[in-house]
């Protein structure tokens, strides 16, 4: 409770700020609508108004401010509008049995989730294998590790369109493959770094103890290094899954994809429907939160199984 109260307060403050911001953001549009509807607006004509500051406009047309909170295509929608749009494209469609129609965010979220999980699995596998290689081979560490760091300073989005062109030229029709590659690219690094740390976490004494038991390299890997790295692994998996989702959405944004949350954002931009963009954004946020929570829950389960007391 003591931790919940501050978070809720801050959230409430953010929502209040958001509501306050809607009025100045939407006032011009609201006044244009009002004028078209025959109402008297000071000053007249949107050309004149574009040179007046929003605060003056709000002061002179106090009666029309409310209109800004109920626009069809607002510059800044209210939280309630976003929530309603989100419900309309998820829950309501699911209730009508059309959860997987192409207009529903459940369907687009599912497409995004698939690529994310695919890329996440790929990135995690590369990260773990790379970490094992780096821990056991000095040559690998010296030649690959610097490039792994450099690879993360390269803005992947510059490469995203190239990856998509390349894979379509190579005859890969499936849209999910290039997206998964991009998300694996973003996801492997935190896993790699965390696993290297984890595999190296056993102390000298522990490794020596295993040697006195006459354990070989493989046995000490399986029975000491691997279990010791599990907490590190889960911590980096949480970062990795969030990164994988970012990668998928980035992969969907600039490439003319048709389905997926990133594509909804793109289409919302092209058709000038801000509500669709905001709903897709919030759906992506909910998905990210759910994935991170799920891994946190798995972490707790695994740690309890391994006999660690929370």
């Amino acid at each position: 409770m003591t931790r919940l109260l501050p978070v809720l307060t801050v959230l409430l403050a953010i929502v209040a700020l958001w509501y306050a911001a809607v009025a100045p953001m939407n006032i011009r549009q609201a006044l244009d609508m009002a004028e078209r509807g025959g109402a008297v607006v000071v000053p007249e004509g949107s050309r004149v108004r574009s040179e007046t500051s929003v605060w003056t406009l709000m002061a002179q047309n106090t009666g029309e401010i409310a209109r800004g909170y109920a626009l069809d295509r607002p510059r800044l929608p209210t939280p309630v509008q976003v929530g309603a749009e989100l419900w309309k494209t998820t829950g309501e469609m699911a209730l009508r049995g059309r959860a997987f129609s192409t207009r529903s965010l459940i369907y687009h979220g599912w497409i995004t989730l698939q690529s994310t999980l695919f890329g996440f699995a790929l990135g995690t596998a590369i990260g773990i294998l790379g970490a094992v290689g780096i821990v056991y081979s000095r040559t690998m560490e010296m030649s690959v590790m610097p490039w792994a760091i450099i690879s993360q300073t390269v803005p992947i989005v510059a490469l995203a369109p190239m990856i998509i062109v390349l894979s379509s030229q190579l005859g890969i029709e499936e849209r999910a493959v290039p997206k998964a590659i991009i998300s694996a690219y973003l996801c492997f690094f935190p896993v790699l770094v965390g696993m290297v740390k984890g595999l190296r976490s056993p102390s000298r004494e522990q490794l020596d103890l295993l040697r006195t038991y006459n354990a070989g390299g493989f046995a000490s890997f399986l029975k000491l290094r691997l279990p010791a790295s599990v907490p590190y692994l889960f911590t980096s998996l949480k970062i990795g899954v969030a990164a994988a989702l970012v990668g998928t959405i980035v992969g969907e944004l600039p490439t003319g994809a048709i389905s997926g949350l990133g594509a909804r954002i793109l289409i919302g931009d092209q058709f000038g429907t801000p509500l669709a963009i905001w709903a897709a954004l919030f759906a992506a946020a909910i998905l990210a939160g759910a994935l991170v929570t799920l891994i946190g829950w798995l972490q707790g389960l695994a740690m309890r199984r391994m006999g660690v007391r929370a």
Binding site: I249, V250, L253, G268, L281
Partner: peptide, 8 residues
């Protein structure tokens, strides 16, 4: 979060 989505 994938904040990049607010770009448009």
């Amino acid at each position: 979060l994938p904040i990049i989505g607010i770009a448009p």
